[in-house]
């Protein structure tokens, strides 16, 4: 197999909230063109890891993005360099219109605004239809699409997406994972945090299993799906 380029490499990353150690010395790698799944139960530390990468929570350790250490950079610099985080639970600007939300997403990438907008509307035609609607009045699924669309507007080199399935109907969840796969075929690199391990691993090439702040397992999706322990704990043994 041809050795792929490292986009993101994390070494010995720790995140603490006062006395709580949310992440302990985690190591992780994401290669170009990959979908990597981050699996863990509630409170395992998935969100903490993603926030630490953007320096929203102050981490300790080493984060290399495209070979450069970004650990001490500010959030806006990191986003400008090409990482976007689509947060859990539909974080949108609900009093603004859908279009304004997308404009805000393009803050660091306004020169090919039209091209990106076209792309987002191609993935999510509903957003084009509703572009002058107030975002807070969108349905939950549409809000999640808007959240993803807003992330895409910055034309990121790495998309990090946190629990896209949270609170959505199975049909919509399936749609969203479908779109994630499409995005990956387009060439986007995706780091996906999910509790729904089965769905996530179906979509991903490789996966990491996180338990109370530690990676306990890692491997290709197939390995993880066949791993006894992973199956017992995270896949309900039904795969």
């Amino acid at each position: 197999m041809k050795k792929k380029n490292n986009i993101l490499k994390i070494e010995n990353l720790s995140v603490t909230y006062g006395p709580i150690k949310a992440l302990r010395k985690a190591n992780l790698e994401v290669n170009e063109g990959e979908v990597v799944a981050l699996i863990g139960a509630n409170g395992a530390g998935k969100t903490s890891l993603l926030k630490a990468i953007l320096n929203i929570e102050k981490p300790n350790g080493k984060i290399l993005f495209l070979g450069k250490d970004i650990i001490s950079k500010s959030t806006d610099n990191i986003v400008a360099s090409g990482i976007c985080l689509i947060p859990e639970g539909h974080v949108i600007f609900s009093s603004m219109t859908v279009f304004e939300n997308l404009q805000l997403g393009a803050y660091h990438n306004s020169y090919d605004f039209d091209k990106n907008l076209e792309k987002v509307f191609a993935y999510f035609p509903i957003l084009q239809e509703r572009s002058s609607q107030i975002a807070g009045t969108l349905s939950g699924g549409e809000q999640q699409m808007l959240s993803i669309g807003r992330g895409l507007m910055s034309n990121p080199k790495l998309i990090m997406i946190d629990e896209p399935s949270l609170g959505l109907a199975p049909k919509i969840v399936a749609d969203i994972f479908e779109i994630l796969s499409e995005l990956n075929e387009e060439g986007y690199t995706i780091l996906l945090a999910e509790q729904n391990a089965k769905k996530a691993l179906e979509c991903a090439h490789r996966g990491y299993v996180l338990e109370t702040g530690r990676f306990i397992l890692q491997g290709t999706s197939r390995e993880l799906m066949n791993n006894q322990k992973a199956r017992r704990v995270y896949l309900g043994g039904s795969v």
Binding site: L54, I56, T75, D76, I78, V79, A80, C84, L85, P87, V91, I92, F93, S94, S95, M96, L104, G105, Y107, H108, R150, G151, S154
Partner: peptide, 10 residues
Amino acid sequence: ENRFAARLIG
């Protein structure tokens, strides 16, 4: 409106 989201999108 949303300081966290604003920070998040850079």
